[in-house]
């Protein structure tokens, strides 16, 4: 059986794992701590796909009907 590549699904937005420094920069920019970010499970297929560990920050790049493209951040828990 072929494995399904979830990242290719139309409803799954682009997930990018942020490097430590970049994650820190983003948090500082937003004026939030890790706890204030929305969460994503470490067992989430996309979290596994980008090889994220607990405490990492994932950037989501989504298609948006209002803004064309929008960003969101998730902390891996």
């Amino acid at each position: 059986m072929t494995r399904l590549d979830v990242s290719k699904h139309v409803l799954v937005s682009t997930h990018v794992l942020l490097q430590k420094e970049e994650a820190e920069r983003v948090l500082k920019e937003l004026g939030v701590t890790l706890d204030d970010l929305p969460k994503i499970s470490a067992r989430d297929p996309m979290a596994k796909y980008v090889k994220a560990k607990k405490g990492d920050v994932i950037k989501l790049i989504r298609k948006s009907p209002t803004a064309g493209q929008s960003l969101a951040y998730r902390v891996v828990v």
Binding site: L30, V32, D35, D36, A67, S70, L71, A72, Y73
Partner: peptide
């Protein structure tokens, strides 16, 4: 408590 819900309201800030 200041937790982030959305980066920009409605994604476009309108």
């Amino acid at each position: 408590n200041g937790e982030l819900i959305e980066l920009r309201y409605g994604e476009d800030g309108v």
